[in-house]
Design a protein around this nucleic acid. Sequence first.
DNA 1: AATAGAAGCGGACTGCGGTCCGTTTCAATG
DNA 2: CATTGAAACGGACCGCAGTCCGCTTCTATT
Lengths: 197, 197
Amino acid sequence: MSKPLPLLTSPPPERRDAARNREALLEAAVCLVEVHGVAGVTMDALAARAGVGKGTVFRRFGSREGLMAALLNHSETEWQAAVMGGPPPLGPGAPPLDRLLAFGASRMELNLRHAELIEAAGHPGTRGVGALSFTTMHVRYLLGEIGVVGDLGYLATALVAPLEIIVLREQVDRAQVPMARIVAGWTDLVHRVVSAP
Amino acid sequence: MSKPLPLLTSPPPERRDAARNREALLEAAVCLVEVHGVAGVTMDALAARAGVGKGTVFRRFGSREGLMAALLNHSETEWQAAVMGGPPPLGPGAPPLDRLLAFGASRMELNLRHAELIEAAGHPGTRGVGALSFTTMHVRYLLGEIGVVGDLGYLATALVAPLEIIVLREQVDRAQVPMARIVAGWTDLVHRVVSAP
DNA sequence: AATAGAAGCGGACTGCGGTCCGTTTCAATG
DNA sequence: CATTGAAACGGACCGCAGTCCGCTTCTATT
């Protein structure tokens, strides 16, 4: 027992080569998406492009879905920052109802922009906690600020659900609903929800 | 041009061997699901079990997702029949608001029961038209009967969205929300939506 | 600097979804 | 029946996600 107590020693940071490879992989992935589209990013191609073995790719990201989630994570984090600290009405400073409406429109736009990536990332694993959770928590918070009473957790989930890419695609692609009408519809929905009898 | 005009000739029905194989495949699929679970239903295993070639399986269902959609189709049709013509409050005869609430609870239960199959069926292709469409149209109709005014199409989509399996799983599995609270939450949501100011 | 052992690496290997095309089976016609 | 054109069949084949395990590289310790 000559080892120093592991108290307070944060989990060993990251080996130099591992860091290098991670960066190379992410860069290669971004490049491949640009060139061949999301569907063209195969794990073999990615490994070759980054000059590493296939095993390394899976060690980093666990699965193809994990890789996509990692790619998504970047823009997702940026967006969260805009929501938490950016300019109003999306960021703080505007009345909560205005923030909520701006939030919905912004979220729809983001989800549509990254549709392919989101679908390739699937639901399971990393993303759920980072993405769905944040949006729901934020909406819940705004509902509270607005003064809504009731099961805010459920109401937040219900308001976020129609913003999900699966629902949006159904409307935009299959039913050919114009975006303006979707945004207007969600706005109306919010008004109905916040004005409790 | 000695052929009879193809007017009114319905698309040639189905060859005998094709019909036989279809039945064998569906039966084998159901059996495999029972024994090995949804994940254990591989296209090769299915082909072998039904005593046909792999190509035949793909000719029938187009893809694994198509197969799952076909399996789902059975119970889905049954459920639709219950909604359209079964006993109240789900079926006709009850006040439309009661029908709507019964609809929500029933749909949640159905989606949870077939969760694996639904996720394996994916969104694309056959299912969307048959399933999502029907539920949305029905909710839209009920909203009209209740007397709601506004963009009924969007409101219906928004009410159906939180019943989707993806959203339900998030609540049930990750957040451990009890079913009773989910049902109560959806009921509250409906009340907020239908009581417009 | 030497060393030990853990963390990381790589690529052959497996299993599955999906395609392709030569062969077989059906049913409509004379 | 015999014929014939089309629909259906079957299984070899391909590409990709994911696993496995022996080898290499890093870092902490003395």
